[in-house]
Nucleic acid binder design. Structure first.
Lengths: 261, 261
DNA sequence: CCAGAGAAATGGTATGACCACTTGACCACA
DNA sequence: TGTGGTCAAGTGGTCATACCATTTCTCTGG
């Protein structure tokens, strides 16, 4: 059985969804002022509390600035938001993906991954090494089952991140991972070669065990380069797709909150 | 005159401040359930709407998970939050700084900066090049004025980020920059050498103008390494400081929202 | 022309009520 | 014994309304 959790959107979540879409897709420009809270209540047909909760979240995300008495203005999220926004930017409302964003993410992955491996090697602990060994052994045992390998590959990098003892990398990685998990099914084929590369994973693990930062870095660079081009090609193809057939449609469970009057 | 903006904390902001501090500093552990909203109202003596706005923000930041009917549980922010959290983690509530977090940030800076310079060189546009030249010229003109140089150095990197056309880097950089700006005065002396290194900036600019990615990357690496050790030494010293004399105290304008009854 | 007072618009806080969901205890039935 | 049903209590979600605090606009008087 492969059941998926039923998405239950609250009203304020729907308001957030809708407003953030307007901003992220440029239909409201930076500098524009949002309608007043009471006006939004009328337009969306919901309570003011729900509007305020959504606006607070938009403020937290760096999309708008709220000024007591002076209305809310839209910010330029490119200069004010954090990495949380990545998955929202990659997945368009119509279910398609944005190639530029995908390329950015892959570039960041390619830059951070090797440094994570290097730091993990420099700061290695017995605990992390043991769990890395277990992880690689599990990959060897389940070689062939692509979904299991994908999960183990995620665990592998999670361990590296943990071993690197760098909270900034870890937080950035969270954003990358959550974006990745949204597209997991889609990317499975493109990343098959990379997640199935047992030798590549083992080499990183061994370099870390020996505390050889440079080798861990180089091995990680090699492993990550495997999937990059395949993913970029796939993303390019996905972007060109007509939105009607967008395969990621099942992922966007925005509720309908139309302005009908 | 060097006046600082007066911080006007709304009630819900104060609630967010207080709860996020409890979580970030580990006084509430991941997995714990938060008090019920109505209980928080009593404890903090504020309206339920304010509590809810704060909780929504905590959810947005990846610090808590809210379940309809089932209470709110604290998440492990190390695995669920984005880079927005960095400045909150670096600056402790008592006004001190966390050395580990600072080191993490400097490492990320050292990894991202050179790749940003490389990409900027590969994707350079006339517009960015011209503005970079203007920026470097301005630095040469105002050499000696450390505060102006600091501002121009920020502008220099902002231009590189823009030229690199990588939204992931840009969003991560936003978090680094906002953290940096919180500590600007503190770090001024430690970074004097780096921001005053006109040759270093010029070399990067020239490599970008010529589209030489490798050289831009190498030059950036050299420039950034200048300030790293000085900053780390300063952070280490700051962390050891008794909190009473913490020099960053003026930055923490949390309002007092004590539980007095 | 302009400083200042007042009005209007807008966000912030408070209260009280009721709806929707989760949880756990208890019970009936197979 | 266990399976499903029912119910009550606790908790988050939504709503309507009123009033306070701040900003912004407008008009007035000098």
């Amino acid at each position: 059985m492969a059941l998926t959790k039923i998405a239950r959107n609250s009203v304020s979540d729907a308001v957030y969804e809708q407003l953030s879409r307007e901003i992220l897709e440029g239909r409201i420009q930076p500098g524009d002022t949002l309608p007043a809270e009471r006006a939004l209540c009328d337009m969306l047909g919901v309570n003011r509390g729900a509007i305020r909760e959504a606006l607070k979240r938009l403020g937290q995300a760096g999309l708008v600035e709220i000024r007591h008495g002076g209305g809310s203005t839209v910010l330029d999220f490119r200069s004010s938001a954090g990495t949380d926004l990545l998955s929202g930017l990659l997945l368009r409302a119509d279910g398609g993906v944005d190639y530029e964003v995908g390329r950015s993410i892959m570039e960041m992955r390619a830059a951070l991954g090797p440094d994570v491996a290097r730091l993990c090697a420099l700061r290695r602990s017995d605990d992390v090494i043991h769990r890395l060994e277990d992880c690689v052994h599990a990959m060897e045992r389940d070689a062939g089952d692509i979904h299991t390998l994908q999960a183990l590959d995620i665990e592998f990098w999670q361990l590296l991140i943990e071993g690197a003892q760098n909270i900034a990398y870890r937080l950035a990685y969270n954003s990358l991972r959550s974006t990745y998990e949204h597209l997991r099914e889609l990317l499975a084929r493109a990343l098959t070669k990379e997640v199935s590369d047992l030798t590549g994973h083992r080499k990183i693990m061994q370099a870390i065990r020996e505390g050889d930062g440079a080798r861990a870095e180089a091995s990680a660079r090699r492993l990550l380069s495997t999937g990059t081009e395949a993913v970029l090609a796939l993303l390019q193809w996905l972007e060109a797709l007509p939105s009607a057939t967008a395969p990621a449609a099942s992922l966007s469970n925005d509720s309908d909150l139309e302005v009908t009057d």
